[in-house]
Nucleic acid binder design. Sequence first.
DNA 1: ATCTTCTAGTTAATCGATTAACTAAAGTAT
DNA 2: ATACTTTAGTTAATCGATTAACTAGAAGAT
Lengths: 339, 339
Amino acid sequence: MVNNLKNPTLKEVASLAQVSTATVSNVINNTKHVSESVKKQVFNAMEALNYKPNEIAKSLRVQQSRLIGILISDISNDFISKVVKGIENTLSEIGYNVLLCSTDSDFEKEKEYLNVFMGKRIDGLIISSSGTGDYEHYEDLIKAKVPVVFLNRCPDHFPSNMVMTNNIKGAYSATEHLIKHGHKKIGIITGPLHFSTGRDRFIGYQRALDDYGIPFRKEIVLEGCFNIESGYELTKKLFEENIDVEALFISNNSMSLGAYKYIKEQGIKIPEEIAIYGYDDPEWADIVDPPLSGIKQPAYQLGIYAAKKIVDTVQGNCTETRGIKYLDPEMVVRKSCGC
Amino acid sequence: MVNNLKNPTLKEVASLAQVSTATVSNVINNTKHVSESVKKQVFNAMEALNYKPNEIAKSLRVQQSRLIGILISDISNDFISKVVKGIENTLSEIGYNVLLCSTDSDFEKEKEYLNVFMGKRIDGLIISSSGTGDYEHYEDLIKAKVPVVFLNRCPDHFPSNMVMTNNIKGAYSATEHLIKHGHKKIGIITGPLHFSTGRDRFIGYQRALDDYGIPFRKEIVLEGCFNIESGYELTKKLFEENIDVEALFISNNSMSLGAYKYIKEQGIKIPEEIAIYGYDDPEWADIVDPPLSGIKQPAYQLGIYAAKKIVDTVQGNCTETRGIKYLDPEMVVRKSCGC
DNA sequence: ATCTTCTAGTTAATCGATTAACTAAAGTAT
DNA sequence: ATACTTTAGTTAATCGATTAACTAGAAGAT
């Protein structure tokens, strides 16, 4: 009797079907013509043994793992998880799988993961991470010629393709909208300015002020981390220090949540006492009071695009090495801005 | 010169260090005593070539992939993504990696993924999925002796370990709390009753009514899917059909969001016109008006526990085959219930 | 009838690691 | 001095697939 604990091998299938291993392989992969009768024997043998090809052995031989790594800072972020969903759905359709790594923006962890990725011989990598803006550790990837696509947060001088939303444009629209409501004293709660997301949204904000002739005031730029706590603390600071501001542009979903938390606690009125325009369009945006106006990023689409791009690169159908694709964000106007 | 496009192999390291491949392997894995001088030669050679062991080759030889599959319905769900984060963080520390598959509760997709998993020879699998309550397709896993841990949604008669929150208890507490507010007409918006989560929360609800001598009324049980749309539609139905209800227990975060959406739209007053207790504790719970009372599940902890369990099983340190671990949910009382 | 081409398969090397079995040299006990 | 252990390494088989190179027989061309 066949050993039940071990998976049957191609060799066993071959011997049961009374053909060579080459023939079995050719049947499975449709790589050479095989007569119908022999095919049938092979299929029968596969069926009888409940054979499942060992993809590890295949990977070793053909030198590709069919694995795409995803390096992200935090899978539990609303926006990121939608991106990942887009990536996963797309890749699985093309026959690739996702190796997920969540770094918590920890530099050391990120470095370690890169080594794991190289060890597992991933075919390509999608990166939406990096806490510090320090990118030396990506050098190894470049050396090893691992195809990389950067998503949303992008290092400046890197021979890799990038996919991102047009953050400058989005932030510009939000700020412009507040200006059109008649506000001149518009503050910003921003994430780290060494992230491209943080920086670009800040630039959009600045540019809108500039275009409308509103002088830039350094004291109403509040920089923190892209998380709930930071949103809360900076809003608190704003009000406790009585900073002279009528409206606020907030740079991402988590920070908006934090801001709302403080504002609700204190019973401050939106938009009367402070008008708000956020970035991102979290699912809770239309059930809070007042509903949050935001800049909706096409998260799922972003994932799809990144997935397609990395596969194209892996398969050599994409010769571009520093292409930047911008997807446009969308204004979702609700009430928090004063509309 | 060494070919730069290909990763250096252990053989190349061996030849540069002028030792056998066995010795290099022993140095890397610390499997046999090797003299300091030889060790140094080997390390130098590794360094010089920038050698990274090929984990695929290793996997083939030692017959383990160090890969754990995760089969989930939707990574963009708030609760699930936290679970996944817990799993990933825990596994990566023990040297395992996560192969992520999101099924959208699509039965065919799930079947396909199981095949992919078997092909990739994952060492173990964590499942929190299955749309239909149909579990035959897991048979193959059992046959192939792939260790499985079920998370949160669990089939009834399966020789696998399970990790879940005590849904009955959580739902009981929520319902009991509404009863103690003096309500007798308490409806439920529930997910599919063929999911163990749906069913157990329903049971908890029923049991609480029973214990307090409140007669069960079939017409105030509204069953739908665990998503926003369903929460919205069922709430709409409730009010449009003028069903006689003072309070509502809502079975998960997405459905609560949908309910709030409808209620806000219609300007219905919570808790005066309808008191609400939800399941889950989404991040927006305390910024909506009134803040949502909920049953908080230890999502991250659940992930940690499942990860540890699957590794223990894989490594043979866990002989249990049908252990069920319940983690307790926690009541978070805010204002929507009437407090 | 002879030579060429085509068809349907087989044989065996290969991918890059691990590891059981072996060996030569040095150390130790009697 | 002899026999036994220990030490520090090597040799070669192995994991399970793919695939280039080969082969025997049938078909087709002249």
